[in-house]
Simulated assay, not measured.
Amino acid sequence: MTLIPPELEQISAATLQHYNANAEPFREGTRDHDVTQNIAALLRHIDAEPPFAILDFGCGPGRDLKAFTALGHRAVGVDGAERFVAMAREETRCEVWLQDFLHLDLPAARFDGVFANASLFHVPSQELPRVLRQLHATLKPGGVLFSSNPRGTNQEGWTGGRYGAFHDLEAWSRYMVDAGFFELEHYYRPAGLPRDQQPWLASVWRKPAAA
């Protein structure tokens, strides 16, 4: 079923309203989440001289912006929730852009890496090719995109006031390749558990150097 523009706007508005209404509990509930494995997966594949220019896509309250900055990199955040943007700016003093994922305005070829941790799954599947092309365009040639999404069987819809699309590896890979990326690695999280207890699919992708 194709979503028409008013439906897409409603999806985005309702999801962002949920995050704005629950910004403080979300910050407290995720403050101590250990995503060092994901940060390291992005950084080790970047072929550039540090410090790296990193776009934290869906930066939320700024936890990972702060981590990238502490490692010496130049991190910029983008998020569609006004309260998250305010929190991230205050917490990190980084540049943070307020942009709806369905209405992005990103600079061309600015970033060495894009860190999309638990964010791209909010993009409806029909809009995902366009959003991925925009992320491809904001990367420098040879740049790297990391994504981590809750995985599923390619279903999408509403869960707890938020819209989400839950891709398996095959479908996610097809979207990424069609957007012009090639895979560097993928893994499931949390590490060390049986696959049925690993709800997160993490993957790392490169924009060709000649692109």
Rank of each mutant, 00 (worst) to 15 (best):
A41N: 05
F101Y: 15
E28C: 04
L55P: 11
Q99H: 03
G62S: 12
E95T: 09
D56Y: 04
D32I: 08
G60L: 09
R44S: 05
D32T: 14
A48I: 08
D79K: 07
L43K: 05
P50W: 08
H45P: 07
I39M: 11
L43W: 07
G58Y: 01
E24V: 13
F57V: 10
A40C: 09
P25D: 00
A75R: 05
H103K: 15
H73L: 13
E24N: 07
L104H: 02
R93Q: 15
H73Q: 11
V35P: 00
K66N: 13
A70G: 06
D56P: 03
G72C: 04
I46H: 05
R93K: 15
F84G: 02
G60R: 07
K66G: 08
V96W: 11
I54G: 05
H45S: 11
I39S: 03
D100P: 01
E95N: 06
I54P: 09
M87L: 12
R74T: 08
P25H: 00
F101A: 12
D47A: 14
G72Q: 03
T30Q: 00
L42S: 01
H33D: 15
L102A: 13
A48G: 06
L65V: 12
A88R: 09
A21C: 03
L98V: 06
W97Q: 05
L98G: 07
G80R: 05
D47S: 14
G62E: 14
P51F: 06
H18Y: 15
G80I: 04
C94W: 03
L71Q: 05
C59F: 00
G72I: 01
L102C: 09
